[in-house]
Amino acid sequence: MAAFTIAAGTGNWFSALALGVTLLKCLLIPTYHSTDFEVHRNWLAITHSLPISQWYYEATSEWTLDYPPFFAWFEYILSHVAKYFDQEMLNVRNLNYSSSRTLLFQRFSVIFMDVLFVYAVHECCKCIDGKKVGKELTEKPKFILSVLLLWNFGLLIVDHIHFQYNGFLFGLMLLSIARLFQPSIFCLWFKPQGPRGFLRCLTLCALSSFMFGWHVHEKAILLAILPMSLLSVQKAGDASIFLILTTTGHYSLFPLLFTAPELPIKILLMLLFTIYSISSLKTLFRKEKPLFNWMETFYLLGLGPLEVCCEFVFPFTSWKVKYPFLPLLLTSVYCAVGITYAWFKLYVSVLIDPPVGKTKKQ
């Protein structure tokens, strides 16, 4: 509950948002989980049962410990809590071991570690200026940013359905960004560029790394989506880029959840998040030009027919046996177009936008 009391200065609404998303995460506990569930269980067993010298050499399971030492020590600490839930999960030879207590521990460990992410979001909200403050709470940039980060669709399905520990790691990233925006000697080092210029470049670098092969996992798109959320509530142009990036980037995560029971869950959660993102940012920048042109609108609407074809039409065609990879191919190519387009718009904005506090004439 500590995560829900940190926002006293911001108001009860932040606590409500954090509590609400935590309850949603609890409801997702029984859902499908990927092989990463067994990966992390095995790492718990390795770090708990073996001396440090054997951590990176133990190969009883195919899921050997291959993350940096920081994460190995993280698993070691978790293992000392796990032993109170089910000691058998810490046996290296219990391959593919699963029990109700193991499931609860693994799921709740991810939820608990999100406390750092919640705190980081709270700190990031302090960095948002109040120039565009609406009369209603739901129109305030800080409220919108909190929803975009705390209820991020991609982070929900990757961590709390697919199963990983990205939340607290992204929390460290957002906390670092928040500290750059806060007055200090360190921020002065970035004075010529400004912290927002730094954030824009950071987002561009993360997106470039994702596009050009630095990381092959789909979840890496979140490295760009999350910091882009901070920019989206400050400027209409950035809001437009964010909406294109987050919609296509999140849809590209759909193949991670390929089981039938999770189909309505992922569709509903993405629809809710996407509709909120578009409507809230349109309201925030209603006095400026539309966030999408006709081409962008047509492209984003095309995701609907694409989903219908891949999930509801293709399985009943003769191509399902001959070309089983076709839906994944179509999804990847279609999303690649949108992400590339967002990257190009962000790249152009980095080059031509004036520094914060200066006009284009200056």
Results as ranks from 00 to 15, higher is better:
V81P: 05
V81K: 10
A82M: 09
A82D: 02
A82Y: 08
A82T: 03
K83I: 14
Y84W: 14
Y84P: 08
F85A: 10
F85V: 07
F85T: 10
D86F: 05
D86N: 09
Q87T: 12
Q87P: 11
Q87F: 13
M89R: 06
M89S: 05
L90E: 10
L90H: 08
N91C: 13
N91M: 15
N91W: 13
N91S: 14
N94H: 15
L95P: 06
N96Q: 09
N96Y: 11
N96E: 08
Y97S: 13
Y97F: 15
S98E: 12
S100M: 14
R101Y: 07
T102M: 12
T102E: 08
T102G: 08
L103H: 12
L103C: 07
F105D: 03
F105Q: 00
Q106C: 08
F108G: 06
F108N: 01
S109I: 03
V110T: 06
I111V: 15
I111G: 08
F112R: 03
M113N: 06
D114M: 11
V115A: 07
F117Y: 07
Y119C: 09
Y119P: 02
A120P: 04
A120Y: 01
A120D: 03
V121K: 00
V121G: 04
H122Q: 11
E123S: 13
C124Q: 04
C124Y: 04
C125G: 02
C125N: 00
K126L: 15
C127Q: 13
I128R: 00
D129E: 14
D129T: 07
G130D: 12
G130E: 12
K131Q: 11
K132N: 15
K132C: 13
K132M: 14
V133D: 12
K135I: 15
K135Y: 10
E136N: 14
L137Y: 09
L137P: 06
L137G: 04
L137C: 03
T138D: 10
T138Q: 11
K140P: 02
K140Q: 13
P141Q: 05
K142P: 02
F143Y: 06
F143Q: 02
F143V: 01
I144A: 00
L145K: 03
L145D: 03
S146L: 01
S146R: 00
L149T: 03
L149P: 06
L150P: 03
L150R: 03
L150H: 01
L150F: 07
W151N: 04
W151F: 15
N152I: 02
L155H: 07
L155G: 01
L156F: 14
L156K: 13
I157A: 09
I157N: 01
